[in-house]
């Protein structure tokens, strides 16, 4: 079953030098349980593609399907609903909610989507090594701990599609490896599809498949 389909996605931005095409007819398909690493140079358009896949940004043309839902045909509310229920996002800067403690952050998206399962969140917290930190606030955590909370928040909502944008970019190599291990293992166990945006060949090698973006086009896929 297909978790994400991107069909002929085009996107350009207005800049001081005129209109710049960032994505030129990009197509991708990601099956449930599969992990895909999207690599590319800085400015190659990989983050823009991830934002479009998450419904955060609208393509100029092309089609985005999350499961059987055509995201490009939806309005703002529809895309927000889809994100709540089916898409999990993990960012480089963690983007936890600073006013809520770890426990509230972990359960936030699941509660938002109406699929909160306290036992599952507790189990996730234990597997992520967060059970002793539940009453702490994000500013009281290390970078690695914060990213583990972000992964937990994403997976607690049981999304069909996990989109991760340089999730280890702000962590040292050892911590980054630990975090990626957890993310890959838990995503696979949940049967979710994972789209990982990274510029690290080493990390990309750990995913099932890879796609390389160059000058707004898929240059290679394996």
């Amino acid at each position: 079953m297909t978790a994400l389909t991107l069909q002929e996605i085009c996107k350009s931005f207005d800049t001081a030098e005129g209109k710049v095409a960032v994505l030129k007819s990009v197509s991708l398909r990601l099956e449930m349980g599969q992990s895909l690493a999207l690599t590319g140079e800085s400015g190659s358009g990989k983050s823009t593609l991830l934002h479009i896949a998450a419904g955060l940004e609208h393509p100029d043309s092309g089609r985005v399907m999350v499961g059987a839902d055509d995201m490009t045909a939806m309005g703002d509310s529809g895309r927000a609903r889809l994100r709540r229920g089916q898409v999990g996002l993990i960012f480089q800067q963690f983007n936890l909610i600073p006013s809520l403690n770890v426990a509230a952050n972990l359960g936030f998206q699941a509660r938002l989507a109406g699929v909160h399962d306290a036992a599952f969140v507790t189990e996730l917290a234990a597997r992520l090594g967060l059970d002793a930190l539940m009453r702490r606030y994000p500013e009281q955590l290390s970078g690695g701990q914060q990213q583990r909370v972000a992964i937990g928040r994403c997976l607690a909502a049981r999304p069909a599609l996990v989109l991760a944008d340089e999730p280890t970019g702000n962590l040292d190599e050892a911590t980054g490896d630990q975090v990626l291990d957890l993310m890959l293992r838990l995503t696979a166990e949940a049967g979710a599809a994972l789209l990982l945006v990274t510029h690290s060949e080493r990390l990309a090698a750990r995913c099932d498949t890879r796609a390389h973006l160059r000058a707004g086009q898929i240059a290679a896929a394996q």
Partner: peptide
């Protein structure tokens, strides 16, 4: 920066 994660998690800008 505080609102962006909520938007990404599925709250609309109107909300």
């Amino acid at each position: 920066a505080q609102l962006a994660p909520l938007w990404a998690l599925g709250l609309t800008t109107r909300h």
